[in-house]
């Protein structure tokens, strides 16, 4: 039972953490290596709320705003000139990630931060006591996933974004301001990533470079998902389960690389990954 719950909650966490990167890659086809830094920023929003003595939940709106603003600046100043050089965009955003990581270090020090958890306690699930927060993560992941699907399929902005993904030249010919769609997407993706950073705080230690550990896993999951939300969800469930299984039965250390290795193998055998499943 614990195994099932572990698998589900791991998948949920992977989904939450990947979603910002996924949005940006899905629409812009740009791999944002500053993603790890956005996660870090979000986590430090919790440090700020703690210092101010307010509820850690307030870190969510704070992270959303900071992430959005920085994301907007990043798109405008760093990413926009590099749309034609996608490999260089990886490097430039990685460099930006270093800058943000060091700025956080300068402001808060390099030590691991102690912050109050968002939620404590356990819930009894069919006779097993299980962390309430990890269960909440499932609900949050579902909410984000549903939010994605609804926003993409039900709103005008979603329709426009899909049009830009499918055929940017035609979208432009129809008068869609594709530059604005890109900017909005990057801002939203960064904001969501920063919020994911807040949500990570109870599960991982908070230090300036905490995002880097998550970056590669997210990146690989997004690579196998293309621009399909459903594919991302499926990838998180399959590879999250595999990670828990390897971690439990083989070695917890090897569990950490399961996602990356399986994704790489999958791309070799099936270059489209889960997209189109």
């Amino acid at each position: 039972m614990v195994l099932v719950l572990d698998s589900l909650t791991t998948a949920a966490v992977l989904f939450i953490v990947s979603s910002g990167l996924f949005m940006i890659f899905g629409v812009l086809q740009i791999i944002n290596f500053a993603h790890g830094a956005w996660l870090g920023l979000g986590a430090y929003a919790t440090v700020v709320t703690t210092a101010l003595g307010v509820s850690p939940w307030l870190a969510l709106p704070l992270a959303f705003v900071v992430g959005g603003v920085l994301g907007g600046l990043t798109e405008r100043l760093v990413v926009r000139p590099l749309y034609a050089r996608p490999l260089d965009a990886i490097l430039a955003t990685w460099g930006l990630g270093i800058v943000i990581g060091q700025l956080i270090t300068l402001a808060f020090g390099r030590d691991v931060q102690m912050i109050p958890v968002l939620m404590t306690g356990t819930v009894d699930v069919l006779g097993t006591a299980y962390s309430a927060y990890r269960l909440t993560a499932i609900a949050i992941a579902l909410a984000i996933g549903l939010g994605f699907v609804l926003a993409l399929e039900r709103t005008r902005l979603g329709l426009t974004a899909r049009a830009v993904i499918m055929n940017e030249a035609l979208a432009r010919a129809l008068g869609i301001n594709t530059a604005r769609v890109r900017l909005a997407t990057f801002m939203l993706g960064s904001a969501v990533a920063a919020c994911a950073g807040v949500l990570l705080t109870p599960l991982t230690s908070v230090d300036p470079n905490m995002g880097v550990i998550w970056l590669i896993g997210c990146f690989m999951l997004v690579m196998v998902s293309g621009s399909s939300v459903r594919a991302l969800a499926l990838a998180c469930i399959v590879f999250g389960t595999a990670q828990v299984a390897v971690g439990t039965y083989v070695s917890p250390i090897l569990g950490g690389m399961t996602v990356a290795v399986l994704c790489a193998l999958m791309l070799r055998l099936r270059p489209k990954g889960f997209a189109g499943v």
Binding site: R156, L159, T160, A163, L170, A171, A173, L174
Partner: peptide
Amino acid sequence: YAPQELPLFQDLTILDNLRLALRD
């Protein structure tokens, strides 16, 4: 403008293709 090359969003419905001609 009625283009010839890649003129439609193939995976969108007729309605969505028509909607995209308007701003709202």
